[in-house]
Simulated scan of single mutants.
Amino acid sequence: MSKNVLIFSNDKPESQDIKMRLVKHLKNAGGLIHEKDIAPDIIVSIGGDGTLLSTFHKYIEFVDRARFIGIHTGHLGFYADWQGYEVQELAQAILESDGESISYPLLNIEIDLIDGTHYNQLALNEFSIRAISGTMVSEIYIKDHFFETFRGDGICVATPTGSTGLNKSLGGAVIHPRLDAIQLTEIASINNRVFRSLGSPMIIPRDEWFELRPHVHSDHKEMIVSIDNMTYSDKIISCVKLSVAQERIHFARFKHTHFWDRVKHSFIGINDNDSMDKNPNNYLK
C-alpha cells in the first residue's frame, strides 16, 4: 500500500546517506515522498533525539494525524527504534504497515507576556523557566488554587516521555507515557525558616493544570524559557498555564521498543548476567 512519507534529517553525512538510501528504497517499492499539498502518513526523523524534537516542532501541524519514526544516528536515541543498517527493512515495513500506532501525551503551554502578547505551544518533552541572574520568584497555582510561592533557580514541567530528561536530573520520577499526566519539579529551591516550598516533584492528571506567575522586578525582568530544544531569553512572562494537551504524538507501532526497555538501555545499560539482555528481540516488543 502506497504511503506518503516525509523525511527530515540532520546535516551529518551519515544521516544524509541514510536519507538518500531510504528515499531510494521507498521509491523502488512504490512509496511516495512527501509533497507539500498532501498531508504525510508517516514522518521519519534521522538523527538523535534533538533531531526528532526539531522534526516534531517543524511539522507540528501534522502531529495529530501522522505517525513518527526515528532512525538513530545520535548519541542516545531514546525515541529512535531503527538503526541505519535497517533502512531496507524499514522501507518495506512502512509500505506494508496498516496504520497501527502508539500515542504519547504532549504538554500544552499557554503563555501571557507582560506586553499583552498571548500564544500557545506544544512540547514533547518539557517546559522550563529559569532566572537569568539572581533568584526566581513565582507563585504556583494548581487548577486555579494557590499552592505555594517558589523561590530558587527555576521550574521544570515535563511530559511522561520528557520525564527521563531534565526532570530526571532534578530528581523527578520517571513516568510511563500511558499515563496522561504532567510533572513539576523545582530547580534548586530555597527552603529555610523564612521561605518554604514543597521541594518534591508534583504529578497531576489530565483534568488539572499548573499555572506559574513569576514576579517581575525592575532589576530582574528577563528569564530563560525553554520549550524542548528551543530556548528564549527575550520573553518577559506574566503567566504561563501548563496542562496535558488535547493533541497527542503518534509513533508507528511496528518495532516500537517498550518504554521500560528504553529507560534501561539509556540509563542502566546492558547487563551480561540478565538473560533478557542476551536476546535483543526481547527489546523490540
Rank of each mutant, 00 (worst) to 15 (best):
K255E: 13
E139L: 01
D274G: 01
S275A: 13
M202K: 15
W260T: 09
L6T: 06
E211Y: 02
W82Y: 13
E89P: 12
T231P: 03
D219Q: 08
N4P: 03
N271W: 08
Q88G: 11
I190W: 12
G152V: 04
I155Y: 05
V44N: 01
S218V: 12
L52H: 09
V263N: 02
D219E: 11
I190H: 14
R196Y: 10
S197L: 01
I42L: 02
Q83G: 09
H265F: 13
T135R: 04
T231F: 02
A181I: 07
F259M: 02
G99M: 00
I18Y: 05
N108M: 07
A29P: 00
N281T: 15
D180E: 14
N108W: 06
N273K: 11
R65H: 14
V137A: 10
I190M: 15
T149E: 11
A131V: 01
G165M: 04
G50H: 04
D153V: 02
T55S: 04
F62Q: 11
F251C: 00
D272W: 11
Q92I: 13
C239W: 09
A39Q: 14
A158F: 02
E61M: 08
H34K: 06
L198R: 10
E222Y: 15
K24I: 09
G70F: 05
P40K: 06
N282I: 09
Q83R: 13
N282S: 12
K264E: 08
L6S: 07
L22Q: 09
Q92L: 14
S200N: 15
N108S: 13
F56D: 00
A158L: 02
L76D: 08
L122W: 03
L22N: 11
T149K: 12
T55N: 03
Q92G: 14
T257I: 14
K19W: 06
H34I: 05
D272A: 14
P40A: 03
I60G: 00
I182Q: 06
F56G: 08
F195N: 14
I102M: 07
F8D: 07
F254M: 09
F146H: 07
F251R: 05
I182H: 00
K12S: 12
D272S: 14
L53F: 05
T164F: 10
I237F: 04
I42W: 04
I236C: 07
A181M: 08
K19R: 15
D41L: 11
E222I: 04
V44H: 05
S103D: 14
V216D: 01
I224K: 10
G199E: 02
T164L: 07
M276F: 14
I111H: 00
G84W: 10
I187C: 06
L198T: 07
Q83Y: 03
E61N: 14
Y85S: 14
E96F: 13
F127R: 05
W260G: 12
L26W: 07
H220R: 15
S9E: 03
M136E: 05
V244M: 05
F127Q: 02
M276V: 06
G77D: 08
L106E: 00
H176A: 13
